[in-house]
Design a protein around this nucleic acid. Structure first.
Lengths: 197, 197
DNA sequence: GCCAGTGATGAGACTTGGTCCCATCACTCT
DNA sequence: AGAGTGATGGGACCAAGTCTCATCACTGGC
């Protein structure tokens, strides 16, 4: 038996999400979250740097997966191939268990701009990591940034569809469709300008 | 003569930027900012909802300009044309006076993640507004979002180059070059994928 | 010239996020 | 048994942000 009840971070996360859904993010106090998890404010901040951060666990893992997928892609892979590989490899992070809480999590974030800011920061860091990985493969600066940005956009759209209540389609499948659509739109957008030149 | 010293928001902004440069964002207190501007904490929060917000004045104007430019673009204009028009129309917001403080502002933001979060939120709202304006012209959902995202990326790159100390090139010129580059990269990214299909 | 109204400001109490430091407690290892 | 270790509890403390009420400078009507 462990010294204390195990999985403090997970208990805190569950407690937080429940309270956010029940009373809203702003109306929920860190002390209340800790209370429901059988802990204290001190312990909360030992596991999460922020009140916001309690909703963003596992983001580092995602960055790891994306970077690793791009780094280990075949040498002949284009940036577009890298994006596809990254999205595909990230699918393992979107487990059925996670799917269960995704709609609630999305709703809470959508209702609060502080949380949106945090989500955007995570996205920007992810885009930056992807751009770094692509540059390391020899991609140009702007090309890498465009790809990183579109990769995050693809992730965001894919996640939203995957998290939609009632969805049963696996993450990787949705990602594939989204990515193809996104790339087609990118070509259209660019070609219209080239034609004019 | 006015009842009080005029331009309270501007005085606060200048005081804040000076203190942020001098002691850093975190080490600067709202009370200190207000003091230097000859005001109080209460008054600060009457003009800015946030401590962060003091660095993001005029963002609403930018959104207005972008949306308006897209809305009033000729009916035959493609999304790419709309982006170009939007960037061009935004040039009026980047005055020489503003250029003077841009490098300091950029440095302060770069050193603090709270501020980066706020900047990202502003960017996301801008992208969203552009996407809305494009959808209103009949663009598809994903196409509009891609265009909005790339528009913000273009703005961000353009602003960084324009704000670089020593730069004398006008905003609109930089924007033009950046946008062309961005579109070329978007095509490359998409075509590589199409070729494979 | 006096007086009521108006709008920006000042002052201060109050809540909460977040930091810090130190005590405690449960368990492990020697 | 006793020292060490690591997670926790407790509470002081600071600053952001909210709220309420008083003040003050000027405006306009009388």
């Amino acid at each position: 038996m462990a010294r204390w009840e195990p999985n403090a971070p997970e208990r805190l996360t569950r407690a937080a999400l429940a309270l956010f859904v029940e009373h809203g993010y702003d109306a929920t106090t860190v002390a209340q979250i800790a209370d429901r998890a059988g802990l204290t404010k001190s312990t909360f901040f030992r596991h999460f740097t922020d009140k916001r951060e309690v909703l963003f666990g596992g983001q580092d893992l995602l960055t790891e997966l994306f970077s690793e997928a791009i780094r280990t892609a075949p040498a002949a892979a284009t940036p577009a191939d890298c994006l596809a590989a990254a999205l595909e490899s990230a699918a393992v992070a979107f487990t059925p268990e996670r799917h269960e809480f995704a709609p609630q999590r999305q709703a809470v974030i959508a209702a609060n701009s502080e949380l949106q800011e945090r989500e955007l920061l995570k996205g920007a860091r992810l885009a930056s990591a992807m751009a770094d990985a692509l540059r390391a493969r020899g991609a140009g600066d702007v090309a890498a940034r465009v790809a990183g940005q579109l990769g995050v956009l693809a992730l965001s759209i894919t996640y939203a569809r995957w998290a939609a209540p009632g969805n049963r389609q696996p993450f990787a499948e949705i990602a594939h469709v989204v990515l193809r659509d996104l790339q087609a739109q990118a070509v259209t957008l660019g070609e219209a300008a080239s034609a004019r030149a």
